[in-house]
């Protein structure tokens, strides 16, 4: 097992290097010279000054040197400063990550609690041959849920619960009047973004849980479990669910990975100051250091999370572990 993990860890190093190269190349491909733009904004047009500043920031060095400097600084935690806000990029990223983390965690919990439960129940209902109306309904609802794009769900919810009914706040993480650690206020702000972010995945996991469980319940070892005289709950929730959990855990892990990397469209709609919104804003503003920092962080986090899911998979499915 530890050898498996070590092998997988080693395998992502070239990938990380490749990603950093892509991001670096992208920053160089961006139109416009950052120093000139900066000086233009300050109404200074002085070629000598431009050159001096370029020297100072190492922009006249050959590209490999620039890349190396950027990379080594990044390893020291220095990702530069935001051109727009003048703050350290790492601080901005940290704050964005914190907000994204809270809504991502809430979404995954929602997916597990609602999606998995409904999926497993739908499968059991299907297996026990309940009336067709019920089984059909339980099969169609998740398809509907996963079909509607998240931002459309978000808009509908904002219109209904935020504007028509006025029950819930529709933007930001907190009410300026509430204290910094007012958890109820944070919770209220979390509800709509969480649902908007999670609804499609709730549908997806519901359907996945249902289909997997139905397949599993047809397996011989489920017959065997019945033939052993096990109580029903043990057949369904120990023998059935345990194998069903393998793909479900993978799916939840991948979901968490993609949510943690920020859904910029939903964060934009809810003005949720997460990593996605930060990325969109700095992209629009051409705030290159922030775009680079955010991209590199999102990509490497995503790589690591996918690796974690693979390892998790090996833990829950013994067949993979020994393969």
């Amino acid at each position: 097992m530890s050898r498996y993990i070590a092998r997988r860890l080693l395998s992502i190093i070239p990938l990380l290097i490749a990603v950093s190269l892509v991001v670096f190349a992208m920053s160089k491909a961006l139109p416009g010279d950052p120093v000139e733009i900066f000086l233009q904004q300050a109404d200074i047009a002085n070629p000598e000054l431009v050159n001096a500043m370029k020297d100072k920031y190492g922009l006249n060095d050959p590209l490999p040197v620039q890349y190396w400097t950027w990379l080594s600084l990044m390893f020291q935690g220095d990702m530069g400063e935001s051109i727009r806000r003048g703050e350290a990029v790492s601080d901005l990223l940290f704050r964005g990550m914190r907000n994204t983390f809270s809504v991502a965690t809430a979404s995954v919990l929602l997916v597990i609690v609602v999606g998995w439960t409904m999926g497993v129940l739908s499968a059991v209902v299907h297996n026990r041959s309940w009336p067709q109306v019920i089984t059909r309904f339980l099969a169609q609802v998740p398809v509907l849920m996963l079909s509607i794009p998240g931002f459309a769900v978000a808009v509908f919810m904002v219109l209904i619960f935020g504007i028509s009914l006025g029950w819930l706040p529709t933007s930001g993480v907190s009410n300026p009047r509430a204290g910094a650690d007012d958890l109820i206020d944070l919770g209220k702000h979390l509800i709509l973004p969480t649902i908007g972010l999670a609804l499609a995945s709730v549908g997806g996991n519901w359907r996945l849980a249902r289909n997997t469980m139905i397949e599993v319940l047809r397996e011989d070892y489920i017959r065997m479990a019945h033939a052993k005289g096990l109580p029903l709950w043990r057949v369904y929730f120990l023998h059935g669910l345990r194998t069903t959990l393998v793909p479900l855990l993978t799916s939840a892990g991948l979901l968490f990975g993609s949510l943690l990397t920020g859904s910029f469209i939903l964060e934009y709609i809810f003005a949720w100051p997460g990593i996605g919104l930060l990325l969109v804003e700095s992209t629009v503003n051409r705030d290159v250091p922030v775009v680079m920092g955010a991209t590199i962080m999102i990509a490497s986090m995503y790589i690591f999370l996918n690796l974690a899911v693979d390892i998790l998979y090996a833990i829950v499915d013994p067949r993979v572990r020994y393969a």
Partner: peptide, 24 residues
């Protein structure tokens, strides 16, 4: 497949966003 792996390292729409940033 190595190239594909690099592309897949950028989740969801991130790659599209980057491309749009560069191209305008």
């Amino acid at each position: 497949m190595r190239l594909v792996d690099i592309g897949l390292a950028f989740p969801g729409l991130l790659l599209a966003l980057l491309i749009l940033t560069v191209l305008g």
